[in-house]
C-alpha cells in the first residue's frame, strides 16, 4: 500500500511539473548551446585583414616613442581580449571655435579616420572604437577635447554614461601624463568591449546572483502559501434567503426634513510651480552615418 502510494505521489508530482521540466530542459539545452557558440565565436581569430596594424597615431606628438610602443602593446593585448579594434589619434589642429562646429568636425574626423583605415575586429568597419584627442590651443582660446567614435558592437555598448566613464578616466591624467590617460581610456574601452555596457561590477554580479536565488525563493514561498491557504466554504445565504411568500411589506414610511447647515470656504488659487529643466553637456550620442556611409556612435566633449 505504502509503495503504491509513493508511486502514485511520484506520478502526480511528475505530471504536475511536466511542463516546467520540459521548459526548463529546453532552456538549459539552448543556453548551453548558446554558450558553446559564444565561446567558439570568442575564440575566433581576427576576421579583418584590411586594416593597418598601427593603432597609435600621435600627430600632436604628446607621447614619447617608448610610450607609444608600450601603448601599442597594451592595445594589442586588450584587443585580443575584448575582440575590438582600439585606435588612438592625437591631433593639434583647429576644429572650430563654436561648440557645434567643433563637435561636427571632431566627429567627422574620427569617423572618417576609422572608415579610411577600415578598422574593425570582425570585419572592415566592424567592432571597435577610435579615440580622437585634440590638443589645439591658440590666442583665441583652447580647442582641446576628445571624441570617441564607436562602431559595430561598441556602438551599441557605449552610451552617454559609458562615454563619460571613459573620458573621465582619461582626463584624470591627460594634462600631466598623456600616456597614463590614453592607457586608462584603452582599458576602459576594452572592459566595455569584453563585458558589455555593464562592465565588470562586483556589486552587480552579486546582485544578479542574489536575484537568481532569492527571487525564485520568494516566488516559491508565495506559491506554497497560496496553495496552502483555504477556507471551509463561503456563506452563500443572503438576508432574503428565508423570506416567505408574503415577503417584505413596507407599512409606513416617512422622511421629514428637520434642519439644514450651510458651510462655506474660500477656494485657494493654486500657483503653478516652476519645473526644472536639465541640460546635459557634451556632443551627440545617437547613431549617425559617416561620410563613407558607415554607422557610428559615440560622442565627446571639450576640456
Amino acid at each position: 500500500m505504502d509503495k503504491e502510494l509513493k508511486r502514485e505521489a511520484l506520478r502526480q508530482y511528475l505530471k504536475y511539473f511536466k511542463v516546467w521540466f520540459i521548459i526548463t530542459g529546453i532552456v538549459v539545452v539552448l543556453t548551453i548551446g548558446a554558450v558553446i557558440v559564444r565561446v567558439v565565436a570568442d575564440n575566433r581569430p581576427r576576421g579583418n585583414n584590411m586594416a593597418p596594424t598601427e593603432r597609435v597615431f600621435d600627430y600632436a606628438d604628446v607621447l614619447t616613442d617608448s610610450e607609444e610602443q608600450k601603448l601599442r602593446q597594451e592595445i594589442a593585448a586588450c584587443e585580443k581580449k575584448a575582440k575590438i579594434d582600439i585606435v588612438i589619434v592625437t591631433l593639434n589642429e583647429p576644429m572650430g571655435e563654436s561648440d557645434r562646429v567643433w563637435e561636427n568636425n571632431m566627429m567627422n574626423y574620427a569617423d572618417d579616420f576609422y572608415d579610411n583605415g577600415k578598422y574593425g575586429w570582425n570585419r572592415a568597419y566592424g567592432d571597435g572604437a577610435l579615440l580622437l584627442d585634440n590638443w589645439y590651443e591658440d590666442s583665441n582660446g583652447s580647442q582641446k577635447g576628445s571624441w570617441l567614435s564607436t562602431s559595430g558592437k561598441m556602438e551599441d555598448t557605449i552610451g552617454v554614461r559609458e562615454e563619460d566613464v571613459v573620458l573621465d578616466a582619461m582626463y584624470a591624467y591627460i594634462d600631466t601624463q598623456p600616456y597614463q590617460a590614453y592607457r586608462a581610456a584603452v582599458y576602459k574601452l576594452a572592459d566595455y568591449g569584453e563585458h558589455g555596457y555593464n562592465g565588470v561590477d562586483e556589486g552587480e554580479v552579486l546582485a544578479s546572483l542574489c536575484c537568481a536565488w532569492v527571487v525564485p525563493f520568494i516566488v516559491a514561498v508565495i506559491y506554497a502559501v497560496m496553495h496552502m491557504s483555504q477556507s471551509k466554504a463561503k456563506d452563500t445565504t443572503t438576508a432574503k434567503t428565508y423570506i416567505g411568500r408574503e415577503g417584505v411589506n413596507l407599512r409606513f414610511k416617512s422622511d421629514d426634513f428637520i434642519r439644514k447647515n450651510v458651510t462655506s470656504h474660500r477656494i485657494e488659487s493654486s500657483s503653478s510651480g516652476g519645473g526644472g529643466s536639465s541640460h546635459h553637456g557634451g556632443g551627440s550620442h545617437g547613431s549617425h552615418r559617416s561620410s563613407g556611409g558607415h554607422s557610428h556612435g559615440g560622442g565627446g566633449r571639450r576640456r
Binding site: G247, N249, L250, R251, S254, D256, F257
Partner: peptide, 12 residues
C-alpha cells in the same frame, strides 16, 4: 440637510 427617517416593515 437632516431628515427624520421612519420605517415600519413587516417581514415573514
Amino acid at each position: 440637510s437632516y431628515y427624520d427617517v421612519r420605517r415600519n416593515v413587516d417581514v415573514s
